[in-house]
């Protein structure tokens, strides 16, 4: 086996080298740039220590973005998870219709974020042509939905409406994953519990939940990681506004790099985001270590 080893490193090389060139090397470079005054254009790059971090930590917008990311994470850990679990439990008992429901639920998930965002912006949330304007008389006068403006136009509601669109697109994925996990529950356990007279809630609490717990936890980790990276819907629908009301760390970093040419600060923000991602990844690797050594 040993004498074949070199040949196998060659087979592994394309995948690893490509990933190293696109992800690892630039990632390490970002870690370096975060401590310099590089503007992304010029050739001069001076080591300035932790100045970039001090600058972003002193920026009110940075903290607002971080707060919004946390709010976003909490929303995603509850709403789509709840819908996903409920629909998966109900689908578990369906026969032939199960596939049809799954396909319908995944519809928004397979569409481009740009398509979904533009759809909601124009035909639902738009203050002139949107469905919300058409049905605004159904809401009380002082509600943000009542007047002739988009709920995306108010710093207090923008974040929640962007999150709503992203959740609309996302929850079907969780239904499919939870359903797959639920179906691995040993049928004898379910039958035994049913004979003992367990109700639906008891079945879920004592039979199904313990089986799918690893999957539920893994999804929590993945949702947390991607909530700190969320970008597309926010960037397309509000650009982080109004008044930074829906600013995320990702849009904050993107604006710093490509609009303000402050690469050092953008890199520092990228590092902070990675810190949350890395913490969750570590947890993820630790959880899957059984898989790796199996």
């Amino acid at each position: 086996m040993r004498r074949w080893s070199f040949q196998y490193y060659l087979l592994l090389a394309p995948a690893v080298l490509l990933s190293v060139a696109v992800v690892l090397a630039p990632g390490l470079m970002t870690a370096y740039v975060a401590f310099t005054d590089w503007n992304g254009v010029s050739l001069s790059m001076n080591w300035i220590g932790t100045v970039n971090f001090e600058k972003i930590f002193a920026d009110r917008v940075f903290w607002q973005a971080l707060g919004n990311n946390i709010r976003w994470t909490l929303l995603f850990l509850t709403v789509p998870v709840g819908i996903g679990l409920l629909t998966a439990m109900l689908l578990l008992k369906r026969g032939r219709t199960r596939t049809v429901y799954q396909m319908i639920y995944l519809g928004p998930y397979v569409l481009a974020p740009v398509t979904n965002a533009i759809l909601w912006l124009n035909i639902i949330l738009n203050p002139v042509s949107g469905l919300l304007r058409h049905v605004r008389h159904l809401f009380p006068r002082d509600s943000p939905l009542a007047p002739l403006r988009s709920p995306l136009g108010s710093p207090d509601t923008a974040l929640y409406f962007v999150a709503m669109v992203d959740i609309w697109h996302y929850w079907g994925f969780l239904t499919v994953i939870y359903l797959a996990a639920l179906r691995q529950t040993p049928q004898e356990l379910v039958e035994a519990a049913t004979v003992e007279g367990a109700g639906v809630l008891q079945l879920f609490r004592f039979i199904y939940l313990p089986t799918i717990l690893p999957t539920v936890l893994l999804m929590f980790v993945i949702i947390t990681i991607f909530s700190f990276l969320t970008f597309e819907y926010v960037y397309i629908m509000t650009g982080g506004g109004p008044a930074h009301g829906s600013e995320m760390l990702s849009t904050y970093a993107y604006t710093l790099a490509f609009n303000a040419l402050q690469y050092g600060k953008a890199a520092a923000t990228g590092l902070v985001m990675s810190f949350f991602g890395l913490a969750a990844s570590m947890f993820y690797v630790w959880m899957s270590r059984r898989e790796v050594s199996a």
């Binding site: 992800v23 990276l229 985001m273 993820y284 790796v292």
Partner: peptide, 27 residues
């Protein structure tokens, strides 16, 4: 087939969760 299969597996696991913003600008 290679001695470092475990390191490569863990590398790919971490690479899956790296934020694009971390490597976007130098890339």
């Amino acid at each position: 087939r290679v001695r470092h299969w475990r390191a490569v597996t863990i590398y790919f696991m971490l690479a899956m969760t790296v934020p694009i913003q971390l490597f976007l600008f130098p890339l």
